[in-house]
């Protein structure tokens, strides 16, 4: 059975149909890419998968749970996390603190324990710090741990979002245009990072415009056009699909 099954998913904004009856499955362990022109509905799809938007119709089943009935934080608790196309870094914190928030679900400390700083809190803080540093290390950012997040260059902020998401030890990671705005070297680094994430056992859903990157790393590719599924298959199959060629070159 697939890890993620989307059935009959629809989203309308007033008269605009952003997602029009989408069905697809994502297998455990895959790097599954979603491509399509600007405005195709890719970000909307991610927002539906994470309950940031409520679908107009349809279901999203992840590991037997219907995500459309859950709130975003409950979805995170099931092991689904994401990065954002328009960065959502906590700019009021240090790099390390950002990633420590990512460890929220792997720690327990409540408000009362925290207020009186019971010994359990001190122990857990140390553990969380270690987990966060580990995630930063994985993304090659350990040396920046103590910097204020708002002093990082754009490329690093994108990586920081990934480190924060990974700190939660997700089962599935949704990445919305991780390579957008990166230079060539950074893009190459990003594609190896995506592969390493996948190799560590995380299922990856990738939205990306850089076709070189998508075709290189993906196991499967889904093409969206005006909120509808245009084509789906391996990178080779999709690249040879006449419908995709007309949609991309014909306009």
């Amino acid at each position: 059975m697939a890890l993620l099954s989307v059935r009959g998913l629809e989203k309308h904004f007033g008269g605009v149909t952003a997602i029009a009856g989408l069905d697809f499955d994502v297998e455990q362990g895959a790097i599954f890419s979603i491509i399509g022109p600007n405005g195709a509905g890719k970000t909307t799809l991610f927002n539906l998968l994470t309950s940031i938007y409520t679908p107009s119709a349809g279901t999203v089943i992840f590991d037997g749970h219907d995500l459309t009935r859950l709130k975003p934080f409950q979805i995170a608790a099931l092991g689904v996390t994401r990065t954002f196309q328009n960065l959502q870094v906590f700019l009021n914190m240090t790099v390390l603190e950002n990633v420590m928030v990512g460890c929220h679900l792997r720690s327990r400390c409540g408000m009362i324990e925290a207020a009186f700083r019971l010994p359990s809190v001190i122990r857990e803080e140390k553990k969380v710090r270690g987990m966060a540093l580990e995630a930063l290390e994985f993304c090659g950012m350990a040396d920046m741990a103590e910097r204020a997040a708002d002093t990082l260059p754009y490329g690093m902020l994108k990586k920081l979002e990934i480190a924060r998401a990974l700190a939660a030890r997700p089962r599935m990671l949704l990445m919305d245009e991780p390579a957008a705005g990166l230079n060539d070297t950074e893009t190459v680094n990003m594609s190896s990072l995506i592969r390493e994430i996948s190799a560590s056992g995380v299922t990856v859903l990738l939205v990306e415009h850089n076709m070189g990157l998508v075709m290189k790393v993906s196991h499967r590719v889904l093409v969206l056009n005006y909120g509808e599924l245009l084509s789906q298959g391996t990178p080779q199959e999709v690249q040879c699909d006449p419908k995709v060629i007309t949609a991309y070159l014909g306009q």
Binding site: I52, F73, I75, T81, Q88, F90, G102, C109, E124, A168
Partner: peptide
């Protein structure tokens, strides 16, 4: 000072920084 420098304190600052990102890291905002 204790609250600020703790799991719930960081969750609060996360709500301030980006509520949607806080939710996606599992914070019940």
């Amino acid at each position: 000072l204790n609250i600020v420098d703790s799991r719930p304190g960081r969750a609060l600052a996360a709500v301030h920084g980006s509520e949607v990102a806080a939710q996606m890291t599992g914070v019940d905002t």
